[in-house]
Every structure is written in C-alpha cells, then in structure tokens.
Design a protein around this nucleic acid. Sequence first.
DNA 1: CATTTATATAAGCGTTCTGTTATATAACGA
DNA 2: TCGTTATATAACAGAACGCTTATATAAATG
Lengths: 112, 112
Amino acid sequence: MRNLDAAFSALADPTRRALLARLARGEATVLELAEPFDMTQPAISRHLKVLEGAGLIVRRVEGTKRPCRLAPAAITEIDQWLGLLRDALAKNYDRLDDVLATMKPKPRKARR
Amino acid sequence: MRNLDAAFSALADPTRRALLARLARGEATVLELAEPFDMTQPAISRHLKVLEGAGLIVRRVEGTKRPCRLAPAAITEIDQWLGLLRDALAKNYDRLDDVLATMKPKPRKARR
DNA sequence: CATTTATATAAGCGTTCTGTTATATAACGA
DNA sequence: TCGTTATATAACAGAACGCTTATATAAATG
C-alpha cells in the first residue's frame, strides 16, 4: 500500500491537519479554508491538492468554486494499518510482567 | 499536540513502517532490524531515532545492545486525533441526503 | 589492555518539501 | 464582451530529508 505514504505524510503537516479539522465541521471552498491562515491562496491550494492526492478529501465543481469535504478512503486505510500496531501493543501488554522485569523500575503499581 | 507532527511524519516513511511492522512481532536490536534492509546501519539508526522521538518505540540498554519495542504513546495520540475525522465522516454520512441534494442538477446551458 | 561488537554521530550531497510572487484559466455578472 | 471572482499553475529560493562513508564510543571478550 504505497498510499499510506501519501496519507501519513499529508497528515504530518499541521496546516493540513488544521484544514481537515475545519472540514470536519463541514464542506468549504478554497478561499473559506484559506481565510484563517497567514498564508497565500496558492499555498493552501497546494495543501488541498496534497490532501486530495492522499484520498483524505474530495472536491466537487460548483461554478467557479471547488468545495471540499472529507473523504473516508485514506482514513480507512490508515486505521487498518494502525490496527497492526494496536494488536501488537495489546499483546505486549499481556506480557507486561516480562517488560517490567527487564525494566526494573522504581516501585510502582502495575495493573492487570 | 505538536507531537502529531513527529508521529505522522515518522509513519510517512515506508522503511520506518516496515521497522514498526517488524517490532510488532517482538523486540529486536538495531542490527536485527537493519538486516532485512538494503541500507546501511547508520541509516537504520537514524530511522529508529525518528521513531523514538515520535514516541512510537522505546529502547532499553542491554550491554552494548539497544533492543527496541513498540510504545503506545504516539499510537494513542494519533487514534485520538483521527477520531475527530472519523466522527465527522460518520456525521457526513448521516447527512448524505443533503449532500446529494446540493449535487443535484443545476441545469446549465449547453454551449460551444 | 587490545580487539571486537553494537550502535551512534558527523559531514557531505542530491532530492523533496513549502512557501512566495507572478500569471493563467474558467465561470460569473453586468 | 469586459471585468471580477475563484482557483490553479509556474518558477524559484531556502529548509528539511534520507542516504552514504568515515569515525567515535562503550561494553564484551580474550
């Protein structure tokens, strides 16, 4: 899945995450999205292109506007991949005794 | 949470994801991790440093070795953030009718 | 001690990001 | 048709990235 490259690296940028957070509140046009940022419109357009390429948003054409909204594609793929790590961590947790033994920490309460 | 920058950008690299996938199968030393890759040891060391900085792995000291294993910190944070998008997507789905409605025909004149 | 083993750090280089300004395109409205 | 509005593209500079080779450090071993 080479798409994960695009998805994760799209999410790595705080501006792009902020754009997504805004879109979480509903559809918006490019200028609407650009407004809160101290950044030029071309810069925002590029960020949106990255998000679109990663499958995180989709756009429709409405006259001269291109309203964007969130897309499920990338999120699903990411969730699936992260599942691998989550499962592994859960297993590690089952083996917590081993971990604690090797860590030899200052006294602290362990849970089960 | 500016840690998300580090976490997502750490995950954006396929080599680093492969390292994590390997660690999902259990603890491993730097050389063990480096072995499958057509890449020098310093390169892997750097990748591991990035993963550690992002809170995706932790390492302990065992003689001259530094076995790595997965850490839950970053995953948790990422999951939390993605929750925002997931929720929004779920809502968008509820409002699917609206979306379809706005997409509806807005007859235009043929031309050219 | 001297050597080997496991890993880290440094310096150098080409490539990829991210922002800018300037300009293009396409639809709208008068 | 003309000007305006919404967005995209191009060209460019500087920062960040990822790899390499060479070297440093610190524990293990003989």
